[in-house]
Structure formats: structure tokens, C-alpha cells
Simulated scan of single mutants.
Amino acid sequence: MSLRTRITVSLPADLLAHARAASGGDLSGCVEYALRAQQLRDATPVLRAWRAGAGDDAEELADLFGEEIL
């Protein structure tokens, strides 16, 4: 497990209410999931370029992430 750092964030009340409801009691986990998903979306251009050159090796990504991500 990686080192965790406690932070403070400010969110609009409606977004916080939704996150609390959707988190099932694990707000930190919900935020981590959302940030990791954004990290993957940000990497999409690089991943697409890799996949274009990888051909049939694209299954390697699915193996790494456990699902089709693009």
C-alpha cells in the first residue's frame, strides 16, 4: 500500500452530497477512484498511440487493468 497524505478540499454542497451517497461510506476511496480514472483519461492519447503500434498486443493492457479501458 502506498503512503497516504491527508488533505483538505472544498466542494460544492451538491457534489459532496452525491459523493457521500455514492461512496458507501468510503469517501476517500471514491475520490481516489475518480482521480485514478481521470489519470487514465489523461493518458488516453499515449495509450491509443501505443495500441495503434501494438496490434494484437493490446490485450496486455486489458490484462493490466482487468477490463477494456478504451
Results as ranks from 00 to 15, higher is better:
8 T>K: 10
35 L>Y: 02
26 D>M: 10
53 G>R: 05
21 A>I: 10
47 L>P: 00
18 H>P: 02
59 E>C: 03
57 D>C: 01
31 V>Y: 03
30 C>S: 10
55 G>V: 02
62 A>G: 05
66 G>P: 05
16 L>D: 11
44 T>S: 06
33 Y>D: 14
18 H>S: 07
25 G>N: 02
58 A>L: 02
21 A>M: 09
61 L>N: 02
18 H>R: 14
5 T>M: 15
26 D>C: 06
13 A>H: 08
33 Y>G: 04
70 L>V: 08
41 R>T: 04
62 A>F: 04
57 D>A: 05
64 L>N: 04
6 R>D: 15
41 R>N: 07
4 R>W: 12
52 A>Y: 07
47 L>H: 00
16 L>R: 13
35 L>M: 07
43 A>H: 04
10 S>A: 15
24 G>W: 11
19 A>M: 14
28 S>E: 11
32 E>K: 09
61 L>V: 08
8 T>F: 13
4 R>A: 09
22 A>F: 10
29 G>S: 01
33 Y>H: 12
45 P>N: 01
62 A>L: 08
17 A>K: 14
16 L>S: 09
70 L>N: 05
44 T>Y: 03
47 L>A: 01
24 G>R: 13
5 T>I: 15
29 G>E: 02
4 R>P: 00
53 G>E: 05
60 E>V: 07
17 A>W: 10
70 L>D: 10
2 S>N: 11
32 E>D: 13
19 A>C: 12
39 Q>D: 13
65 F>R: 03
25 G>A: 00
12 P>F: 05
31 V>K: 04
15 L>P: 01
33 Y>R: 15
47 L>W: 03
18 H>G: 04
58 A>Q: 06
49 A>E: 12
48 R>E: 13
62 A>N: 09
1 M>F: 13
6 R>I: 15
23 S>D: 15
1 M>S: 15
13 A>Y: 06
36 R>W: 02
44 T>N: 04
38 Q>C: 04
40 L>Y: 01
24 G>L: 10
7 I>T: 14
58 A>N: 02
68 E>Y: 00
49 A>N: 08
28 S>P: 02
9 V>F: 14
66 G>I: 11
57 D>Q: 07
44 T>K: 08
65 F>C: 05
13 A>E: 14
17 A>G: 07
22 A>T: 12
